[in-house]
Design a binder for these strands. Structure first.
Lengths: 301, 301
DNA sequence: GTAGTGATATGCATAAATGCATGAATTGGG
DNA sequence: CCCAATTCATGCATTTATGCATATCACTAC
């Protein structure tokens, strides 16, 4: 039989709890294994071991997908709480750490990650060779409280209370298109001309239309025949002459083959906020990266 | 060097946190290892690994004993919270478990554990063979919230809010001494006579004197020339004729060679409270033991 | 229906953690 | 002042957990 070192629920493996949480949130052992950076058999076995040592069935194996038992659901509440505390431990530990080594995670839009971050990160790497910079390129907002990133570069002011945010720059953006495309369709003189051309969608098309309409450009869904949630892909579509889109001037300036549309139009303005957890800001390695990012991003004003 | 699978403090081993907690509370790796039922090298290595993966020094090794770093102290707050949540998980899991198997921990005074519990536990064992009953014989009050026991038998009403308590009996106690001792010093007729004899201390002598004084027996510390914190030892001392002590009548009745002193004196009365966590009370295996204990202990009224 | 996708479970080789035995160092007591 | 008793650190053998490859199963789409 088994060895049953810890009969009953007195002492259980805390790591197995984390496997359970990931499985419950992702819906399968395989998906949980991916986030935990472990293998599917491992996660499956850990959850099974937890079930055994707790004496409770957490999931119903109905062949296809796992369903949370009512007992599992009740436990999940506490398990989430435990994970929250674990995150707080992680944050507090980092804030206490005064060494300039270890990992720092920066999250930013994919466009900024590709076009603006690399040279800055190269500088940081030279300043602090033992620092490991991890860029999380994502257009959805990552949660700093849950430690999905240490530092976030955002274009909206964060609302959460425990976060500190610094407005480092006010960036300008204009309409851009490939010169080849404009040669073909002609260069618009007015915003009404503009509304007759093709646009390349960027993330959520609906909100983009709303934004443009409120800026006085009467575009509709008809204008958006191509697009991508991934900013870089959308920008490449623009570069290959598939239409017009709004882009930060800095990025556009380093992209050959595109030119500004309605050059005299007043620019769109958007803020660049640098964000981190207030506790993390006391950690030397975080502060170093934060301050250097602030300094360098200020140049893109 | 090391392999550093998880650089930075993003992902750390939750079990290592428990090792840290035990070490911080017990003051040494060895002591922590005893509580965790692990070896001292393991605990030491786990804490070292945690320090490494968190990038923080938790303890100062000053040769003799470990001292918590300020960083460690700050982390300890959150770590305790994490352990609390883990306990809640344990309790909730048990409350959800409807199988009559696994461990049930009962805590009681050592005297009760030795003289009264064994036959009851034997009955339970026959009723539920797959149940593992663990008796924690301790005269200090064990914490049910921290899951040091599932069911506690106490002589004071518990005050904590999440506990449910059942008054199962009102037991009687008298003065007892070995017949051989009374043959030697004579059988006292009054309480003043009594106060001239030797008493055997039971736990804290000061509170015992206070108790006897308020009962009208003018004893002083002079009367207590022997004693033991361990009730069974004290009772054995009584049985061997080293003096007088108060004892529950049931226990005294099954001890040959002792007889009641001042037999007509009205008995001391003390309550027997059965206590468990309110959530645990819904678990079938806990309920079974709880109810059977209540039923059997009622006979000792 | 039938092939294809994505999931869970199992056997087996490997990697990692654990425990034991031991040495070094420190404290407390005679 | 030295001896006894603890404590932490390290080398080594063993146990334990992990990952890979694979078989099996359920569901989807054509």
């Amino acid at each position: 039989m088994h060895k049953c070192m810890n009969w009953g629920a007195i002492n259980f493996d805390w790591n197995q709890v984390r496997s359970f949480l990931a499985t419950a949130e992702k819906g399968s052992f395989s998906a949980a294994a991916r986030v935990l950076e472990q293998s599917q058999p491992t996660v499956g076995r850990q959850v099974a071991a937890l079930e055994h040592s707790l004496g409770v069935t957490l999931f119903e194996r109905v062949g296809k997908s796992l369903n949370l038992t009512s007992a599992g659901e009740e436990l999940l509440v506490h398990v989430r709480e435990m994970a929250d505390v674990a995150n707080r431990i992680s944050i507090t530990a980092t804030s206490q750490s005064n060494t300039i080594e270890g990992q720092v995670r920066i999250t930013a839009s994919d466009v900024m990650s590709v076009y603006q971050l690399p040279p800055i990160i190269k500088q940081i790497r030279e300043m602090a060779p033992r620092l490991e910079i991890d860029v999380v390129a994502a257009n959805d907002l990552r949660d700093i409280q849950r430690r999905e990133a240490d530092i976030a570069i955002r274009h909206v002011r964060p609302t959460q209370p425990d976060l500190i945010a610094k407005l480092v720059a006010e960036a300008n953006a204009h309409f851009y298109a490939a010169s080849s495309y404009l040669d073909q369709v002609g260069r618009p003189k007015t915003e009404e001309d503009l509304a007759k051309l093709d646009f390349v969608g960027f993330g959520d098309v609906t909100t983009m239309i709303g934004l443009l309409n409120s800026a006085g450009i009467p575009v509709t869904a008809q204008n958006f025949r191509t697009g991508s949630k991934t900013g870089i892909v959308a920008w490449e579509l623009v570069r290959h002459g598939l239409g017009i889109s709004v882009m930060a001037d800095d990025v556009a300036a380093m992209t050959p083959g595109v030119e500004r549309v309605l050059p005299s139009r007043e620019p769109f303005k958007f803020p660049i906020w640098l964000t981190t957890h207030s506790e993390l800001h006391t950690a030397r390695r975080i502060r170093l990266v934060f301050d250097h990012l602030a300094k360098q991003l200020r140049n893109y004003a």
